[in-house]
């Protein structure tokens, strides 16, 4: 294979893995919320988006120092995530599907509010190392790509260690398995649940910030990203840990190669073709959720 083709292949692989790293960061939040509170939060990406948009507004428009603006954005994302649980999820009937409807409504609400507050134009965000590049063998290695990839790996491994080797992880697993028994054993189940939702807000904000640096900020930019994360979760199974986290990396890599080989229009169909193939060809025992392996 000519050197230029190898360089292109490495370039596409690197960007796919970097995107996958950010998908993994988002995926950890989706898994934690699903396993601990049994909910899917469609407004998850928008939770990060409003935090990032607020940061942008504060440093770029209001002239507040960047660090303060970032902290304010982070605080908003944490607040939105925890309030989603405390004010919305806990107050709806515990019937299947209600969480989907109300968080879909929250997604639309946050999108509209962001448009009203910050406008409809896309805005260029902080560089976050996207402007630092080195060339190795014809491949442009961007520091932001490396950061996203390493962050994804660190979050994946860290999440596993916390869940399996710490007392916090034990409490989470106990709460997920049977909240009543966990409560009788002295675990603050509701407090843990709120903490999990808040951590999901943190993860959403981190991923949304890095995606904003790679793309731009507007009211919609997180929506297609979160759709891909949910698809990876569906393929891997949200009741497990490793399969969805690995699916987050692979789906991004797969989509990058599909776009590179077949054009951008092939990106979305390629993902759905993969889903259909997996669901129809892979034996059911590999796709069925392992309830004993909850967090």
């Amino acid at each position: 294979m000519p050197a230029a083709a190898l360089a292109d292949a490495a370039q596409v692989t690197l960007s796919g893995l970097a995107t996958g790293g950010l998908y993994a960061v988002l995926m950890l939040g989706v898994i934690l919320v699903f396993q601990v509170s049994k909910n899917i939060n469609f407004a998850y990406g928008q939770t990060g988006m409003v935090g990032v948009f607020l940061s942008y507004f504060l440093y770029a428009v209001a002239g507040i120092p960047v660090v303060a603006a970032l902290l304010a954005g982070l605080a908003l994302a944490l607040l939105v995530a925890s309030l989603t649980d405390r004010l919305i999820i806990r107050n709806i009937p515990a019937r299947e599907g209600f969480d989907l409807v109300v968080t879909l409504g929250e997604l639309l609400l946050l999108t509209s509010l962001a448009q009203l507050a910050f406008g409809t134009n896309a805005q260029s965000y902080l560089k976050l190392l996207t402007n630092w590049t080195t060339v190795r063998g014809g491949v442009f290695i961007n520091a932001n790509d490396i950061l996203c990839l390493l962050l994804g790996i660190a979050v994946t491994l860290g999440g596993h260690i916390v869940l399996t080797r710490t007392s916090l992880g034990t409490s989470l697993r106990a709460s997920a398995a049977d909240a009543a028994i966990a409560k009788s054993a002295g675990i603050n189940v509701l407090g843990l649940r709120t903490a999990v939702w808040t951590v999901s807000g943190l993860l959403a904000w981190v991923a949304a910030s890095l995606f904003a640096a790679r793309l731009s900020v507007n009211a919609f930019y997180m929506t297609p990203i979160v759709i891909n994360v949910f698809i990876a979760g569906m393929i891997g199974g949200l009741d497990r840990y490793w399969p969805p986290m690995i699916a987050a990396f692979t789906i991004a890599l797969y989509q990058s190669w599909a776009i590179y080989l077949f054009g951008e229009a092939a990106g979305t169909p390629a993902v759905f073709i993969l889903v259909i193939l997996l669901l129809s060809l892979v034996p059911k025992r590999y796709l069925e959720e392992r309830h004993e392996a909850r967090a």
Binding site: A4, Q11, S15, A252, Q255, S256, T268
Partner: peptide, 20 residues
């Protein structure tokens, strides 16, 4: 000609196609 659909999470594959 590279057709595009709005809303991609990563433009690097298209950019790499163009570079090629």
């Amino acid at each position: 000609y590279i057709p595009e659909i709005p809303g991609t999470p990563d433009f690097t594959p298209i950019a790499t196609q163009l570079r090629r």
